[in-house]
Simulated assay, not measured.
Amino acid sequence: MRNNHRLRWAAIPLAATLAVVLAGCTQAQLHGYLPGFEEEGETAVTNQTDRIAGLWTTSWIVLLIVGLITWGLIIWTIVVYRRRKGQTGLPVQLRYNMPIEIFYTVVPLILVVGFFAFTVRDQIAIESRYDNPDVTIEVQAKQWAWDFNYVDENVYSPGIQGQLDPDGERGSLIESELPVLVLPVDQTVEIALESRDVIHSFWVIDFLYKKDVIPGKTNYMSVTPERIGTYAGKCAELCGEYHSLMLFNVKVVSQADYDTYIQSLRTAGNVGQLDNEFDRNQNQPGTSAPTAPEGN
């Protein structure tokens, strides 16, 4: 009874200290230093970033607790059962301890099942496609840039790979030359991802989400942008010599600014859709590419 009383009094200052520490954390710290969580009170970048960050940070907290318990038991065993001065021979050998063996079997099983269940739950929510998205975008990945089709508006925005700035520092890019994907804030967006050549990966860093772009297959990404701003994107799959220059920006804007941008594409003559007409893979063996007669 006395031991329980002491433990209770020890837990109070520990809980108070933990609460003070957490209260003083920034948004970046509370979300595991993930991108997109920088300012106090900011809206999440998308409807899924909080979910992704929650899965990440909770997993790490659980793993750190398990690690601390494991390290503590190892250190305790080393200290308590160390060889004392004057002792010789081996310590008493224990062959079986059923309670401990059951504990060491059940706890990891619970952890694995728990991580699996929460991951599947969040993955289903993130991967679910909208029935009737407000905006439909088709992304054509190519070595080494991106083309964006605004399907509902029947306009497109072609892109080129990142251009080095001759007047800037070494490795700096001309920001205005990067492809830009413009999305309206608080609208459901479905992005269809296609590749004209090799495997790429569409990654918007602050969205905490990426998806592979595979030749001959259309992958989908469903998201609702919730914070106006400009967010960096890149290819996250090594795709050739200029992979590091396969960059783009995502601009989340108001509906009025989005409508203005769409009109600017029409004014520029970018009406229609960019398709797979320039797909290099149609000339690969096993496709419908013409073959030369034998002997030629």
Rank of each mutant, 00 (worst) to 15 (best):
T77E: 12
E294S: 15
A141Q: 10
V189K: 00
E190Y: 03
A44M: 07
S254E: 07
V80H: 09
P99D: 02
D259Q: 15
E169Q: 03
D122Y: 05
I65Y: 02
A19F: 15
G114L: 00
F207M: 01
R6M: 10
R170P: 00
D279A: 11
V189G: 01
R280W: 12
V45S: 03
D50W: 08
L7C: 05
E190K: 13
P290I: 07
N97Y: 13
Y209M: 13
E38C: 09
I12L: 14
D257T: 06
F202L: 12
F103R: 09
T260H: 09
I214K: 13
L73H: 05
I191G: 06
A11T: 06
E169Y: 04
A268Q: 11
A192M: 13
A292I: 10
S128M: 11
T105I: 12
S264A: 03
V253Y: 03
D122I: 04
Y231W: 12
Q263C: 00
A236C: 11
L111W: 04
L64S: 07
Q273S: 14
R2H: 08
V139R: 05
W76Y: 15
F103W: 13
N3F: 11
V155I: 05
E101G: 08
G89A: 00
Q93H: 06
R280N: 08
Y220L: 11
G240M: 01
P293Q: 05
G216D: 04
V120H: 00
D275K: 12
P184G: 05
G229R: 02
G272T: 08
Q93K: 11
R280Q: 11
N296S: 10
A145C: 11
L111Y: 08
G159K: 01
E175V: 06
A11D: 02
V113M: 08
V139H: 04
E153N: 02
G168D: 05
V223S: 12
L14V: 10
T17F: 14
A10F: 07
V151S: 00
T136I: 09
E101H: 13
V180T: 10
I61G: 02
V107T: 08
V250T: 13
L173A: 00
